[in-house]
Design a protein around this nucleic acid. Sequence first.
DNA 1: CCGATGTTTAACAGAGTTGTTAAACATAAT
DNA 2: ATTATGTTTAACAACTCTGTTAAACATCGG
Lengths: 222, 222
Amino acid sequence: MVETNGHTSTEQAILDAAEELFFDKGYKLATTTAIAAKAGVTHAMLHYYFRTKEQIFLKILDKNMNEMFTMLQTVMSPDLTLKEILKEVVNLHYSFLSRHEKLPSLILELAGTCPEMFHRYKARLRETVDKEVFNHRMRFDREADAGTLNRIDWFQMMFMIISMNLSTFLALPLMRNVFGMDSRQETAFLEERRKEIIRTLYARLFGKGLPEESAVSQECII
Amino acid sequence: MVETNGHTSTEQAILDAAEELFFDKGYKLATTTAIAAKAGVTHAMLHYYFRTKEQIFLKILDKNMNEMFTMLQTVMSPDLTLKEILKEVVNLHYSFLSRHEKLPSLILELAGTCPEMFHRYKARLRETVDKEVFNHRMRFDREADAGTLNRIDWFQMMFMIISMNLSTFLALPLMRNVFGMDSRQETAFLEERRKEIIRTLYARLFGKGLPEESAVSQECII
DNA sequence: CCGATGTTTAACAGAGTTGTTAAACATAAT
DNA sequence: ATTATGTTTAACAACTCTGTTAAACATCGG
């Protein structure tokens, strides 16, 4: 049953079922039995192909994290104005999230309940953040000096962008639950949300006559 | 062993242990055995006092949700300017969250994995939201008409405030993990974050000369 | 002291979890 | 056809989870 890509069809079926269940229920609550059942095989097959639950999970997590890092690295193309870059960052991140709706909550679960599993990505994440800091932080400060941009701490700005995008998708299950949105309303809400995030970001960075609270302390977290 | 408050000391010990474990591990992963062990009793005691895991959980969740609703209702005192109200909303919500650091992720877990358990709060949440809409929405629209405020959809604004605050605390475990913050850095980060959230909100609402993206569509989700 | 009541323990039941293993099955090469 | 190889199954082991129960223990009113 070996196919051209080197995977057997059952191997792929297990991977697909596992990915869906891990994202749906999280690492601990997605059981090997349920994964096997969804793939249409005995749970012994899962251990035959991947030995342990942890190994199959890491294979899936790796795939998704790689896509995330690729997105993070390509997100900032240097030959654009800051204003264009910011819009691009929000849009790309946002579209990545709509293709990986449940990745954020999985990562948050992992950070909370099995941090050791998250360990393998820490170095890479820090490295990526640091690199982007060096690439773009100076530029923000220069524009702030020139007065074409309201001063903002770089880390706070990144945190703001990421958290505004993330929380939209983190809150989605809750919104569906409480407000009973259908898929048309959901699409409309997400689109309106994306625009509002850019609006807010632009207001913070390029708006004039901001109140005195806009003063920024110099301390930086990283 | 009955004490003055009507609870036995073991009953209280179980409640305390349960609260800590439920917030730490979530509903499904906090086991009755572990709760009993932490309380220093046999797990049979847990069933003697509370019959089932679900009942003890609901008792704890109820307590926390009540505090949340109280906070939500008292958060908007009507005899303040909009500007003052907004700052007050952010500050109260933020301080509530620092006292209930792990409530958001528990609620998100619940919405995802046991929505039926969340069901009992839906009506009350909708009701609270609706009430606040009627109380304050007109006021925002009036000020926007008068030009003392940039126009913004009320729901989007509430979502923005809540999500900026929430995501700060949702990301905290991850930040500790990745950047290894000590508690002094953490306090500084949280304080800087709180100020930045107010800055951003003020910029969006009161900033002048916002780019064309600031136009707001009229459609409303609720 | 005694019995009624409330509390605690230890053992058990039943279901579900991850992981192993020996035997059955399929398939292709010799 | 036979053998070697890879795949699949069903049964099993060891563990953990929730919940029950009968018996032991404490405490206090009479």
